[in-house]
Computed example of a mutant assay.
Amino acid sequence: MSTTENALPPVVDADTWRRELADLRVREKAATRELDAIAAQRRRLPMVELPEYTLVGADGPVRLADVFDGHPQLIVYNHMWSDGHEWQCPGCTGFTSQFTRLDVIERYYDARFVIVTNGPIDEALAYRDRVGNRMTWYSSADSPFGADVDAGPNEGFGVNVFLRDGDTVYRTWHTSGRGTERLSYLQGLVDLLPFGRQEEWEDSPQGWPQHPTYEQGMGSKEIAELYGMTRD
């Protein structure tokens, strides 16, 4: 008996399935090699020197060069923010809540990964705790830093990467929108499922379950109920 009312993939014998999988694997391997080539080009990108910025962390003002905490490399997730709101962007909240073992990147790759938001630091830290986020947060509310790295107030989110040489900081890479997807384990796992993300923009067979984009994801309140201070 079927466990779903949706359409199902065709059923074939094992040999046919292996042939179909082998055909798909050719494309998957080609995509892997292309991503390797993209990463190689990324490592050869030029960089731009930044002026000095002062952000605010849990312990007060801190120079951008000191946000590296002694490491030469820094990844910043620029978190969308609306001052005074109880619940911030669900996409940013869900994306950043998945990062819980950041000691690995610090210990083995000599880098740090932090959040910077344009919101005031007291609100930002309270929100971090409310939703169970375990990353280190900084505020650029009193600095042009957010706007200068393409994530200013009311501009959305982004990921920026920096390199430090002494006290001099350079910007090496930036992405936003769907460019952040490869940093998330969630989309990668869901894309492996037979029904995929079940969003209406996807090229799926007739009869596959689909819904408007982002309609099915958890909201910030639901994330807090699972991981944050509001959980039972």
Results as ranks from 00 to 15, higher is better:
F113H: 11
F113V: 02
V114D: 03
V114W: 01
V114S: 05
I115F: 13
I115C: 07
I115L: 05
T117H: 03
T117K: 03
T117N: 01
N118Q: 13
N118L: 07
N118E: 14
G119R: 07
G119W: 03
P120I: 02
I121L: 01
I121E: 05
D122W: 12
D122V: 11
E123S: 11
E123F: 08
E123L: 08
A124M: 05
A124K: 07
L125G: 00
A126W: 13
Y127A: 07
R128C: 07
R128K: 15
R128S: 12
D129S: 12
D129C: 04
R130D: 02
V131N: 03
G132R: 03
N133T: 11
N133Y: 10
R134E: 11
R134Y: 10
M135D: 01
M135G: 09
M135Y: 11
T136N: 13
T136A: 15
W137Q: 02
Y138F: 11
S139M: 05
S139I: 08
S139G: 01
S139Y: 09
S140Q: 08
S140D: 13
A141Q: 15
A141R: 15
A141T: 10
A141P: 05
D142K: 14
D142L: 14
D142T: 09
D142Q: 14
S143H: 02
S143L: 04
S143I: 07
S143K: 00
S143F: 06
P144K: 10
G146Q: 06
G146T: 12
G146C: 05
A147Y: 13
V149H: 00
D150V: 14
D150N: 15
D150H: 15
A151V: 01
A151Q: 08
A151W: 10
G152Y: 02
P153D: 09
E155Y: 11
E155F: 09
